[in-house]
Design a protein around this nucleic acid. Structure first.
Lengths: 232, 232
DNA sequence: CATCTTATCGTCATCTTGACAATTGTCACC
DNA sequence: GGTGACAATTGTCAAGATGACGATAAGATG
Protein backbone atom coordinates (compact mmCIF):
# COMPACT_ATOMS: atom_id res chain seq x y z
CA UNK A 1 0.00 0.00 0.00
CA UNK A 2 2.47 2.65 -1.13
CA UNK A 3 1.65 6.07 0.21
CA UNK A 4 4.77 8.10 -0.50
CA UNK A 5 6.26 9.07 -3.85
CA UNK A 6 9.50 10.83 -4.76
CA UNK A 7 11.66 11.68 -7.73
CA UNK A 8 14.81 11.02 -5.73
CA UNK A 9 16.07 7.68 -4.48
CA UNK A 10 14.10 6.62 -1.46
CA UNK A 11 15.73 6.01 1.85
CA UNK A 12 14.30 5.10 5.16
CA UNK A 13 16.04 6.47 8.22
CA UNK A 14 16.05 4.54 11.43
CA UNK A 15 17.57 5.11 14.81
CA UNK A 16 19.32 2.34 16.72
CA UNK A 17 20.18 2.62 20.37
CA UNK A 18 23.18 1.40 22.29
CA UNK A 19 21.90 1.73 25.84
CA UNK A 20 24.64 1.03 28.37
CA UNK A 21 24.49 0.77 32.10
CA UNK A 22 26.04 -1.13 34.96
CA UNK A 23 23.96 -3.85 36.58
CA UNK A 24 25.40 -5.57 39.61
CA UNK A 25 28.85 -4.38 38.67
CA UNK A 26 28.59 -5.70 35.12
CA UNK A 27 28.77 -3.45 32.08
CA UNK A 28 25.52 -4.21 30.28
CA UNK A 29 23.60 -3.34 27.15
CA UNK A 30 19.91 -3.27 26.41
CA UNK A 31 18.80 -5.76 23.77
CA UNK A 32 15.45 -6.89 22.47
CA UNK A 33 14.30 -10.18 21.05
CA UNK A 34 12.99 -9.63 17.54
CA UNK A 35 9.46 -10.86 16.89
CA UNK A 36 9.32 -10.28 13.17
CA UNK A 37 11.26 -11.06 10.05
CA UNK A 38 13.95 -10.51 9.14
CA UNK A 39 16.05 -12.02 11.90
CA UNK A 40 12.95 -13.13 13.84
CA UNK A 41 13.93 -14.54 17.21
CA UNK A 42 17.37 -12.96 17.16
CA UNK A 43 18.63 -10.40 19.61
CA UNK A 44 18.93 -6.84 18.34
CA UNK A 45 19.43 -3.33 19.53
CA UNK A 46 16.27 -1.36 20.18
CA UNK A 47 15.36 1.14 17.49
CA UNK A 48 12.85 2.07 14.84
CA UNK A 49 11.87 4.31 12.00
CA UNK A 50 12.18 8.05 12.12
CA UNK A 51 8.91 9.75 11.27
CA UNK A 52 8.21 12.20 8.56
CA UNK A 53 8.48 15.41 10.51
CA UNK A 54 10.50 14.19 13.42
CA UNK A 55 14.01 15.27 14.36
CA UNK A 56 16.25 12.21 14.45
CA UNK A 57 17.26 13.01 18.02
CA UNK A 58 13.59 13.08 19.00
CA UNK A 59 13.15 9.75 17.27
CA UNK A 60 15.92 8.34 19.43
CA UNK A 61 14.22 9.59 22.59
CA UNK A 62 10.86 8.28 21.40
CA UNK A 63 12.20 4.79 20.77
CA UNK A 64 13.96 4.87 24.11
CA UNK A 65 10.59 5.49 25.72
CA UNK A 66 8.60 3.06 23.61
CA UNK A 67 10.99 0.16 23.62
CA UNK A 68 12.62 0.51 26.99
CA UNK A 69 10.42 2.77 29.07
CA UNK A 70 13.33 5.15 29.52
CA UNK A 71 12.59 8.86 29.79
CA UNK A 72 14.57 11.82 28.62
CA UNK A 73 15.99 12.65 32.04
CA UNK A 74 17.12 9.10 32.72
CA UNK A 75 20.04 8.95 30.34
CA UNK A 76 22.73 10.90 28.63
CA UNK A 77 22.14 10.57 24.89
CA UNK A 78 24.66 11.34 22.18
CA UNK A 79 24.96 10.54 18.54
CA UNK A 80 27.29 7.68 17.80
CA UNK A 81 27.65 7.02 14.09
CA UNK A 82 25.55 6.43 11.02
CA UNK A 83 25.47 3.09 9.25
CA UNK A 84 24.50 3.14 5.62
CA UNK A 85 25.77 0.14 3.70
CA UNK A 86 23.35 -0.58 0.86
CA UNK A 87 22.43 -4.10 1.98
CA UNK A 88 22.43 -3.72 5.68
CA UNK A 89 18.68 -4.28 5.77
CA UNK A 90 17.48 -6.93 3.32
CA UNK A 91 14.07 -5.31 2.92
CA UNK A 92 14.98 -1.92 1.56
CA UNK A 93 17.52 0.84 1.69
CA UNK A 94 17.73 1.83 5.30
CA UNK A 95 20.21 4.24 6.80
CA UNK A 96 20.52 3.96 10.54
CA UNK A 97 21.66 6.71 12.85
CA UNK A 98 23.04 5.03 15.96
CA UNK A 99 22.89 6.68 19.36
CA UNK A 100 24.69 6.03 22.59
CA UNK A 101 22.67 6.25 25.80
CA UNK A 102 24.35 6.05 29.19
CA UNK A 103 22.36 5.67 32.37
CA UNK A 104 22.35 4.65 35.99
CA UNK A 105 20.01 2.13 37.51
CA UNK A 106 17.80 1.94 34.47
CA UNK A 107 14.44 0.37 35.25
CA UNK A 108 13.76 -3.11 34.00
CA UNK A 109 11.61 -2.73 30.92
CA UNK A 110 7.94 -3.19 31.73
CA UNK A 111 6.19 -6.31 30.58
CA UNK A 112 3.04 -5.70 28.56
CA UNK A 113 4.47 -2.82 26.63
CA UNK A 114 6.48 -2.79 23.45
CA UNK A 115 9.40 -3.21 25.73
CA UNK A 116 8.33 -6.62 26.97
CA UNK A 117 11.10 -8.30 25.05
CA UNK A 118 13.79 -5.91 26.22
CA UNK A 119 16.40 -6.72 28.80
CA UNK A 120 19.92 -5.87 29.87
CA UNK A 121 22.66 -8.35 29.10
CA UNK A 122 26.38 -8.20 29.85
CA UNK A 123 28.24 -6.50 27.02
CA UNK A 124 30.88 -9.21 26.87
CA UNK A 125 28.26 -11.90 26.57
CA UNK A 126 26.42 -10.12 23.75
CA UNK A 127 29.62 -9.43 21.83
CA UNK A 128 30.88 -12.94 22.40
CA UNK A 129 29.41 -14.64 19.40
CA UNK A 130 27.13 -17.13 21.14
CA UNK A 131 24.04 -15.66 19.47
CA UNK A 132 25.04 -12.84 17.17
CA UNK A 133 22.92 -9.72 16.93
CA UNK A 134 20.62 -9.04 13.98
CA UNK A 135 21.59 -6.82 11.06
CA UNK A 136 24.91 -5.02 11.58
CA UNK A 137 24.08 -4.44 15.22
CA UNK A 138 27.22 -6.15 16.44
CA UNK A 139 29.25 -3.52 14.59
CA UNK A 140 27.11 -0.75 16.05
CA UNK A 141 27.51 -2.15 19.53
CA UNK A 142 31.27 -2.42 19.14
CA UNK A 143 31.52 1.19 18.10
CA UNK A 144 29.30 2.22 20.99
CA UNK A 145 31.26 0.27 23.56
CA UNK A 146 34.56 1.64 22.35
CA UNK A 147 33.18 5.18 22.44
CA UNK A 148 31.86 4.62 25.94
CA UNK A 149 35.21 3.28 27.10
CA UNK A 150 37.23 6.09 25.64
CA UNK A 151 34.91 8.75 26.98
CA UNK A 152 35.87 7.71 30.49
CA UNK A 153 39.43 8.67 29.76
CA UNK A 154 39.02 12.32 29.09
CA UNK A 155 35.56 13.35 30.27
CA UNK A 156 33.40 13.06 33.34
CA UNK A 157 31.07 10.64 31.53
CA UNK A 158 31.45 8.02 34.25
CA UNK A 159 29.04 10.05 36.35
CA UNK A 160 26.29 9.12 33.91
CA UNK A 161 26.38 5.59 35.26
CA UNK A 162 25.96 6.79 38.83
CA UNK A 163 23.06 8.20 40.80
CA UNK A 164 23.04 11.99 41.17
CA UNK A 165 25.15 11.76 44.30
CA UNK A 166 27.83 9.15 44.53
CA UNK A 167 31.04 8.22 46.28
CA UNK A 168 34.52 8.05 44.84
CA UNK A 169 34.38 4.29 45.29
CA UNK A 170 31.21 4.04 43.27
CA UNK A 171 32.79 6.10 40.55
CA UNK A 172 35.83 3.87 40.59
CA UNK A 173 33.68 0.79 40.22
CA UNK A 174 32.25 2.33 37.04
CA UNK A 175 35.72 2.55 35.57
CA UNK A 176 36.46 -0.98 36.66
CA UNK A 177 33.26 -2.39 35.15
CA UNK A 178 33.48 -0.50 31.86
CA UNK A 179 37.18 -1.08 31.32
CA UNK A 180 37.34 -4.49 32.92
CA UNK A 181 40.34 -3.64 35.06
CA UNK A 182 41.15 -3.01 38.70
CA UNK A 183 42.32 0.41 39.77
CA UNK A 184 44.22 1.40 42.88
CA UNK A 185 41.65 2.99 45.21
CA UNK A 186 44.07 5.48 46.74
CA UNK A 187 45.51 6.73 43.48
CA UNK A 188 42.11 6.92 41.85
CA UNK A 189 40.83 8.93 44.77
CA UNK A 190 43.71 11.38 44.56
CA UNK A 191 43.30 11.73 40.84
CA UNK A 192 39.59 12.46 40.66
CA UNK A 193 39.33 14.62 43.74
CA UNK A 194 42.12 16.89 42.53
CA UNK A 195 40.90 17.17 38.94
CA UNK A 196 39.61 20.70 38.50
CA UNK A 197 35.88 21.02 37.93
CA UNK A 198 35.21 17.29 37.91
CA UNK A 199 33.62 16.55 41.27
CA UNK A 200 31.83 18.80 43.69
CA UNK A 201 31.33 17.81 47.30
CA UNK A 202 27.79 17.75 48.60
CA UNK A 203 28.85 17.88 52.25
CA UNK A 204 26.94 14.67 52.95
CA UNK A 205 28.32 11.26 53.83
CA UNK A 206 27.04 7.78 53.23
CA UNK A 207 27.78 4.33 54.55
CA UNK A 208 26.05 2.39 51.80
CA UNK A 209 28.60 -0.08 50.55
CA UNK A 210 30.00 -0.62 54.02
CA UNK A 211 33.32 0.43 55.44
CA UNK A 212 34.29 3.88 56.50
CA UNK A 213 31.66 6.51 55.61
CA UNK A 214 32.39 8.09 52.27
CA UNK A 215 31.82 11.64 51.14
CA UNK A 216 29.15 12.14 48.53
CA UNK A 217 29.90 14.04 45.36
CA UNK A 218 28.05 15.36 42.39
CA UNK A 219 29.64 14.96 38.97
CA UNK A 220 29.94 17.06 35.87
CA UNK A 221 29.38 14.58 33.07
CA UNK A 222 30.36 17.10 30.43
CA UNK A 223 33.56 18.15 32.13
CA UNK A 224 36.75 17.57 30.28
CA UNK A 225 39.22 15.70 32.40
CA UNK A 226 42.62 17.26 32.09
CA UNK A 227 44.95 15.48 32.27
CA UNK A 228 42.99 12.37 31.36
CA UNK A 229 42.84 9.03 33.10
CA UNK A 230 44.46 6.70 30.63
CA UNK A 231 43.87 3.06 30.02
CA UNK A 232 46.98 1.01 29.33
CA UNK B 1 7.76 12.86 -12.63
CA UNK B 2 7.83 10.74 -9.49
CA UNK B 3 9.66 7.51 -10.03
CA UNK B 4 9.99 6.09 -6.57
CA UNK B 5 7.27 4.86 -4.23
CA UNK B 6 7.38 3.71 -0.63
CA UNK B 7 5.09 2.83 2.23
CA UNK B 8 7.43 4.48 4.71
CA UNK B 9 8.20 8.16 5.10
CA UNK B 10 10.58 9.27 2.40
CA UNK B 11 13.96 10.69 3.20
CA UNK B 12 16.77 11.81 1.00
CA UNK B 13 20.27 11.18 2.28
CA UNK B 14 23.07 13.53 1.38
CA UNK B 15 26.71 13.70 2.27
CA UNK B 16 28.40 16.96 3.20
CA UNK B 17 32.14 17.34 3.36
CA UNK B 18 34.32 19.30 5.72
CA UNK B 19 37.60 19.26 3.84
CA UNK B 20 40.40 20.74 5.89
CA UNK B 21 43.98 21.49 4.98
CA UNK B 22 46.70 23.99 5.68
CA UNK B 23 47.45 26.54 2.97
CA UNK B 24 50.38 28.86 3.54
CA UNK B 25 50.25 28.15 7.22
CA UNK B 26 46.53 28.90 7.49
CA UNK B 27 43.99 26.31 8.57
CA UNK B 28 41.55 26.27 5.66
CA UNK B 29 38.31 24.67 4.54
CA UNK B 30 36.98 23.88 1.09
CA UNK B 31 33.80 25.78 0.19
CA UNK B 32 31.76 26.13 -2.97
CA UNK B 33 29.63 28.94 -4.26
CA UNK B 34 26.10 27.70 -4.75
CA UNK B 35 24.65 28.24 -8.22
CA UNK B 36 21.09 27.14 -7.53
CA UNK B 37 18.28 27.76 -5.15
CA UNK B 38 17.96 27.57 -2.30
CA UNK B 39 20.75 29.78 -1.00
CA UNK B 40 21.90 30.61 -4.53
CA UNK B 41 25.11 32.62 -4.45
CA UNK B 42 25.91 31.63 -0.89
CA UNK B 43 28.95 29.70 0.22
CA UNK B 44 28.36 26.09 1.24
CA UNK B 45 30.19 22.90 1.97
CA UNK B 46 30.61 20.54 -0.96
CA UNK B 47 28.26 17.58 -0.96
CA UNK B 48 25.40 15.89 -2.73
CA UNK B 49 22.85 13.13 -2.82
CA UNK B 50 23.64 9.55 -2.03
CA UNK B 51 22.54 7.21 -4.79
CA UNK B 52 20.20 4.33 -4.58
CA UNK B 53 22.68 1.50 -4.28
CA UNK B 54 25.67 3.45 -3.05
CA UNK B 55 27.35 3.13 0.31
CA UNK B 56 27.31 6.50 2.04
CA UNK B 57 31.08 6.38 2.42
CA UNK B 58 31.41 5.85 -1.33
CA UNK B 59 29.09 8.78 -1.86
CA UNK B 60 31.44 10.93 0.20
CA UNK B 61 34.42 9.86 -1.90
CA UNK B 62 32.47 10.41 -5.10
CA UNK B 63 31.49 13.94 -4.16
CA UNK B 64 35.05 14.63 -3.10
CA UNK B 65 36.14 13.68 -6.59
CA UNK B 66 33.34 15.43 -8.44
CA UNK B 67 33.27 18.66 -6.53
CA UNK B 68 36.88 19.05 -5.56
CA UNK B 69 38.92 16.79 -7.80
CA UNK B 70 40.26 15.02 -4.75
CA UNK B 71 41.02 11.32 -5.01
CA UNK B 72 40.72 8.58 -2.46
CA UNK B 73 44.42 8.49 -1.64
CA UNK B 74 44.69 12.23 -1.16
CA UNK B 75 42.87 12.53 2.13
CA UNK B 76 41.97 10.83 5.33
CA UNK B 77 38.18 10.53 5.47
CA UNK B 78 36.14 9.83 8.55
CA UNK B 79 32.51 10.17 9.45
CA UNK B 80 31.71 13.24 11.47
CA UNK B 81 28.07 13.43 12.46
CA UNK B 82 24.62 13.22 10.94
CA UNK B 83 22.35 16.22 10.75
CA UNK B 84 18.67 15.51 10.51
CA UNK B 85 16.53 18.39 11.74
CA UNK B 86 13.21 18.30 9.86
CA UNK B 87 13.53 21.73 8.24
CA UNK B 88 17.23 21.87 7.57
CA UNK B 89 16.55 21.79 3.84
CA UNK B 90 13.51 23.84 2.80
CA UNK B 91 12.79 21.63 -0.20
CA UNK B 92 12.21 18.27 1.42
CA UNK B 93 13.23 16.01 4.23
CA UNK B 94 16.96 15.60 3.85
CA UNK B 95 19.24 13.87 6.30
CA UNK B 96 22.88 14.71 5.82
CA UNK B 97 25.77 12.56 6.85
CA UNK B 98 28.74 14.86 7.34
CA UNK B 99 32.30 13.69 6.74
CA UNK B 100 35.63 15.07 7.76
CA UNK B 101 38.45 14.97 5.20
CA UNK B 102 41.99 15.91 6.13
CA UNK B 103 44.69 16.39 3.54
CA UNK B 104 48.03 17.90 2.69
CA UNK B 105 48.67 20.19 -0.22
CA UNK B 106 45.30 19.56 -1.81
CA UNK B 107 45.22 20.65 -5.45
CA UNK B 108 43.28 23.76 -6.36
CA UNK B 109 39.98 22.57 -7.78
CA UNK B 110 40.05 22.52 -11.57
CA UNK B 111 38.09 25.13 -13.49
CA UNK B 112 35.69 23.71 -16.06
CA UNK B 113 34.54 20.88 -13.86
CA UNK B 114 31.80 20.77 -11.28
CA UNK B 115 34.48 21.99 -8.96
CA UNK B 116 34.93 25.31 -10.71
CA UNK B 117 33.27 27.16 -7.88
CA UNK B 118 35.29 25.43 -5.16
CA UNK B 119 38.11 27.02 -3.24
CA UNK B 120 39.90 26.91 0.07
CA UNK B 121 39.22 29.67 2.55
CA UNK B 122 40.61 30.25 6.02
CA UNK B 123 38.46 28.51 8.62
CA UNK B 124 38.33 31.58 10.85
CA UNK B 125 37.12 33.73 7.99
CA UNK B 126 34.36 31.29 7.01
CA UNK B 127 33.19 30.88 10.58
CA UNK B 128 33.38 34.61 11.19
CA UNK B 129 29.92 35.63 10.15
CA UNK B 130 30.81 37.89 7.22
CA UNK B 131 28.89 35.70 4.78
CA UNK B 132 27.26 32.80 6.58
CA UNK B 133 27.20 29.37 4.99
CA UNK B 134 24.05 27.91 3.44
CA UNK B 135 21.75 25.49 5.28
CA UNK B 136 23.14 24.38 8.64
CA UNK B 137 26.63 24.17 7.19
CA UNK B 138 28.07 26.54 9.77
CA UNK B 139 27.07 24.05 12.46
CA UNK B 140 28.57 21.21 10.48
CA UNK B 141 31.79 23.11 9.99
CA UNK B 142 32.01 23.96 13.68
CA UNK B 143 31.65 20.33 14.63
CA UNK B 144 34.25 19.35 12.04
CA UNK B 145 36.75 21.93 13.17
CA UNK B 146 36.37 20.96 16.80
CA UNK B 147 36.82 17.31 15.93
CA UNK B 148 39.90 18.11 13.87
CA UNK B 149 41.38 20.12 16.71
CA UNK B 150 40.78 17.52 19.34
CA UNK B 151 42.11 14.71 17.20
CA UNK B 152 45.51 16.37 17.30
CA UNK B 153 45.57 15.91 21.04
CA UNK B 154 45.44 12.18 21.26
CA UNK B 155 46.17 10.78 17.79
CA UNK B 156 48.74 11.12 15.06
CA UNK B 157 46.18 12.85 12.83
CA UNK B 158 48.46 15.84 12.30
CA UNK B 159 50.43 13.75 9.83
CA UNK B 160 47.42 13.88 7.52
CA UNK B 161 48.18 17.54 6.86
CA UNK B 162 51.79 16.79 5.94
CA UNK B 163 53.46 15.23 2.90
CA UNK B 164 54.42 11.56 3.33
CA UNK B 165 57.78 12.56 4.75
CA UNK B 166 58.04 15.58 6.96
CA UNK B 167 60.14 17.23 9.63
CA UNK B 168 59.29 17.76 13.25
CA UNK B 169 59.11 21.48 12.53
CA UNK B 170 56.54 20.94 9.81
CA UNK B 171 54.50 18.80 12.13
CA UNK B 172 54.70 21.48 14.78
CA UNK B 173 53.46 24.09 12.35
CA UNK B 174 50.38 21.93 11.77
CA UNK B 175 49.56 22.07 15.46
CA UNK B 176 50.18 25.79 15.49
CA UNK B 177 47.94 26.45 12.49
CA UNK B 178 45.09 24.19 13.59
CA UNK B 179 45.10 25.30 17.21
CA UNK B 180 46.11 28.88 16.59
CA UNK B 181 48.84 28.83 19.20
CA UNK B 182 52.63 28.82 19.37
CA UNK B 183 54.41 25.81 20.76
CA UNK B 184 57.92 25.58 22.15
CA UNK B 185 60.01 23.90 19.44
CA UNK B 186 62.32 22.08 21.83
CA UNK B 187 59.59 20.64 24.02
CA UNK B 188 57.46 19.67 21.04
CA UNK B 189 60.42 17.91 19.53
CA UNK B 190 61.09 15.95 22.69
CA UNK B 191 57.45 15.02 23.05
CA UNK B 192 56.79 13.70 19.57
CA UNK B 193 60.09 11.96 19.02
CA UNK B 194 59.74 10.04 22.27
CA UNK B 195 56.09 9.06 21.81
CA UNK B 196 56.03 5.35 21.11
CA UNK B 197 54.89 4.36 17.62
CA UNK B 198 54.15 7.89 16.50
CA UNK B 199 57.03 8.83 14.21
CA UNK B 200 59.44 6.66 12.29
CA UNK B 201 62.71 8.03 10.98
CA UNK B 202 63.36 7.71 7.28
CA UNK B 203 67.11 8.24 7.62
CA UNK B 204 66.95 11.18 5.21
CA UNK B 205 67.52 14.85 5.92
CA UNK B 206 66.16 17.97 4.33
CA UNK B 207 67.04 21.64 4.39
CA UNK B 208 63.77 22.91 2.96
CA UNK B 209 62.63 25.54 5.38
CA UNK B 210 66.16 26.77 6.01
CA UNK B 211 68.25 26.43 9.13
CA UNK B 212 69.97 23.32 10.31
CA UNK B 213 69.06 20.26 8.25
CA UNK B 214 66.18 18.36 9.79
CA UNK B 215 65.55 14.66 9.91
CA UNK B 216 62.64 13.38 7.88
CA UNK B 217 59.97 11.22 9.46
CA UNK B 218 56.99 9.24 8.42
CA UNK B 219 53.87 9.42 10.55
CA UNK B 220 51.25 6.98 11.75
CA UNK B 221 48.03 8.94 11.41
CA UNK B 222 46.05 6.27 13.22
CA UNK B 223 48.42 6.00 16.14
CA UNK B 224 47.08 6.85 19.53
CA UNK B 225 49.25 9.38 21.27
CA UNK B 226 49.77 8.36 24.84
CA UNK B 227 50.03 10.50 26.82
CA UNK B 228 48.31 13.11 24.66
CA UNK B 229 49.45 16.58 23.74
CA UNK B 230 46.94 18.79 25.46
CA UNK B 231 45.67 22.17 24.50
CA UNK B 232 45.17 24.57 27.39
C1' DC C 1 35.86 -4.87 72.18
C1' DA C 2 38.05 -7.26 68.05
C1' DT C 3 37.66 -7.52 63.41
C1' DC C 4 36.22 -6.53 58.77
C1' DT C 5 35.53 -3.30 55.24
C1' DT C 6 36.14 0.65 52.62
C1' DA C 7 37.78 5.64 52.62
C1' DT C 8 41.28 8.65 52.75
C1' DC C 9 45.96 10.38 53.61
C1' DG C 10 51.15 10.09 53.30
C1' DT C 11 55.54 8.86 51.25
C1' DC C 12 58.79 8.03 47.81
C1' DA C 13 60.93 7.01 43.48
C1' DT C 14 59.99 7.82 38.74
C1' DC C 15 58.18 10.08 34.74
C1' DT C 16 56.48 14.10 32.28
C1' DT C 17 56.23 18.90 31.46
C1' DG C 18 57.27 23.84 30.76
C1' DA C 19 60.78 27.28 30.58
C1' DC C 20 64.80 28.39 28.65
C1' DA C 21 69.86 28.10 27.75
C1' DA C 22 73.31 25.90 24.77
C1' DT C 23 75.03 23.64 20.80
C1' DT C 24 74.86 22.05 15.97
C1' DG C 25 74.63 21.99 10.64
C1' DT C 26 73.68 24.22 6.53
C1' DC C 27 72.96 28.43 3.63
C1' DA C 28 73.63 33.27 2.08
C1' DC C 29 76.63 36.82 1.82
C1' DC C 30 80.67 39.58 2.50
C1' DG D 1 87.39 31.38 4.02
C1' DG D 2 84.87 33.95 7.67
C1' DT D 3 80.52 35.54 9.61
C1' DG D 4 75.73 35.71 10.55
C1' DA D 5 71.21 34.00 10.28
C1' DC D 6 68.21 30.35 10.87
C1' DA D 7 65.97 26.44 12.51
C1' DA D 8 67.04 21.68 14.63
C1' DT D 9 68.39 19.32 18.34
C1' DT D 10 70.20 18.48 22.96
C1' DG D 11 70.62 19.72 28.00
C1' DT D 12 69.24 21.35 32.48
C1' DC D 13 66.29 22.22 36.20
C1' DA D 14 62.29 22.87 39.00
C1' DA D 15 57.45 21.71 39.40
C1' DG D 16 53.80 18.64 38.82
C1' DA D 17 51.70 13.97 38.01
C1' DT D 18 51.81 9.01 38.56
C1' DG D 19 52.25 4.19 40.35
C1' DA D 20 53.28 1.34 44.28
C1' DC D 21 52.24 0.69 48.67
C1' DG D 22 52.07 1.57 53.70
C1' DA D 23 49.31 3.82 57.41
C1' DT D 24 45.36 5.62 59.52
C1' DA D 25 40.28 6.54 60.01
C1' DA D 26 35.47 5.54 60.88
C1' DG D 27 31.60 2.92 60.79
C1' DA D 28 29.21 -2.07 60.77
C1' DT D 29 29.02 -6.57 62.74
C1' DG D 30 29.49 -10.22 65.92
Amino acid sequence: MPKFVSEFPIFSVTVDLVVLTIRDGVFSVLVIRRGEKPYAGRLALPGGFTQEREDIEDAAYRELKEEAGIGKGDVHLEQLQTFGAPRRDPRSRVVSVAWLALGADLPDPVAGSDAAAAEFRPVDEVLGSASPLAFDHADILSVGVERARSKLEYTGAAANYCPPEFTVGELRSVYEAVWGVELDPANFHRKVTRAEGFLSETGENTTRGGGRPAKLFRGSPRARLNPPILRD
